[in-house]
Amino acid sequence: MVAVTGGPPADHLPTAEDVGWLPVEELSAVGAARRAATGLAERLAFTPTRVAEVALVITELATNLAKHADQGVLLLRALRTAEHAEVEVASVDRGPGIADPALAFRDGHSTAGTLGIGLGAVSRLSDAYAIRSAVGRGTILTARFGPRDLRHPARVEPAVAAGVTRPMGGEEICGDAYAIRRQDKRLLLMLCDGSGHGPLAASASQAAVRTFLDIDWTTPEDAVRLLHGGMSGTRGGAVAVAELDPVAGLVRYAGVGNISGTVVTDRKRGMVSLPGIAGYQARTIRRFDYELPEDAVVVLHSDGLNERWTADPLDRWSADPLVVALDLLREAGGRRDDASVVVAKASAR
């Protein structure tokens, strides 16, 4: 499922396509993961040298998952801007964790029972990477690769918001989709959970994405009204739009259906979505405003995640937004439904 960040060119955010989730629980899966990653890099017009570098990192990550992790999985993503495309990979597991991630990234470091083998290749060959690891809980690592010569390093700005989608077990297409737009210091987030699952649900959520990216910047309640109209003729779905305004110290929120919106500080504060199905029946669309402290994180997720996740541990929220989204999906995501989560930090740069 295409998961989009951006909108009009002035927003300067890339589109993100979740290409595939690849389980890696045995060494026999390493080759398949490498082939999938190199195939993606080749489709994105990477040079042969850069394709080989992506292959090396994927091989290291997949081998670590197969040897040392529990329930290890790799996520492959394609990031696109007007200028170029990038490969992004995420490694997620419930393994033993890494006590000292900084040490694990040193070339040659190896500690039995941890994922600290070969991670130096990630720091040397990627344009940007992020990691969160907790002993006994597992590790999440993300890395981005642009199609550039290493003699001319790319400059990757830290992310202020990110999302991820995952289809339900047995499906290849996710019926959820999201989009993120940016204007000055404000962020506008949209998440849609197409009714049901599979291609028809994806068609509904993609109609929401197209509408959201085509409209002028507007209030969340007006955006939801326009999404309701733009999804007409599809099977509809649940939608929510949140505007993060750090200057005003507010998050403005409107939702229809069972999208969950939360402002996280040292606790969770839920935001209100009203009953209805966007594209089909939405009798009441209303905006609710909530305080947005400087250290707050805003989370939107579909009902593919249960709501039992907690604000603890506090160090989770300081991580890269994609790492946080993957952490929440690992903790609270089920496999009997499509799942999606969007994470944005209040302190937009």
Rank of each mutant, 00 (worst) to 15 (best):
L119W: 02
L119N: 04
L119I: 03
A121H: 10
A121M: 05
A121I: 06
A121D: 07
A121E: 04
A121C: 05
A121K: 08
V122H: 10
V122T: 12
V122M: 03
V122Q: 02
V122C: 01
V122I: 09
V122Y: 04
S123D: 10
S123Y: 09
S123H: 03
S123P: 08
R124W: 02
R124D: 04
R124Q: 13
R124K: 15
R124L: 01
R124Y: 09
R124N: 06
L125Y: 11
L125H: 12
L125K: 09
S126P: 12
S126E: 08
S126K: 01
S126Y: 10
S126T: 14
S126V: 06
S126R: 03
D127R: 03
D127L: 01
D127W: 00
D127V: 02
A128Y: 07
Y129R: 06
A130G: 15
A130C: 04
A130D: 13
A130R: 05
A130N: 11
A130H: 12
I131A: 11
I131P: 13
I131L: 15
I131S: 13
I131V: 15
R132M: 05
R132K: 12
R132V: 10
R132E: 09
R132A: 14
S133I: 06
S133W: 02
S133K: 03
S133A: 04
S133P: 09
A134T: 15
A134Q: 14
A134P: 06
A134M: 03
V135D: 10
V135I: 12
V135A: 05
V135S: 07
V135M: 11
V135L: 08
V135G: 05
V135Y: 05
G136K: 00
G136T: 02
G136Y: 03
G136W: 08
G136N: 02
R137T: 09
R137N: 05
R137H: 13
R137D: 13
G138L: 11
G138Q: 11
G138E: 05
G138W: 06
G138V: 10
I140A: 04
I140R: 15
I140T: 15
L141W: 05
L141K: 04
L141M: 10
L141Y: 09
L141V: 02
L141T: 08
T142A: 05
A143W: 00
A143K: 01
A143F: 01
A143E: 03
A143T: 12
R144Q: 04
R144C: 01
F145Y: 08
F145D: 01
G146A: 02
G146W: 01
G146V: 00
P147H: 01
P147T: 03
P147C: 10
P147N: 14
P147F: 07
P147A: 15
P147Y: 03
R148H: 14
R148S: 13
R148V: 11
D149W: 00
D149G: 02
D149N: 15
D149L: 11
L150E: 07
L150F: 04
R151Q: 14
R151C: 12
R151E: 14
R151H: 14
R151V: 13
R151F: 14
H152T: 14
H152N: 13
H152Q: 14
H152C: 11
H152L: 15
P153S: 01
P153H: 03
P153M: 11
P153T: 04
P153C: 09
P153E: 04
P153G: 10
P153A: 08
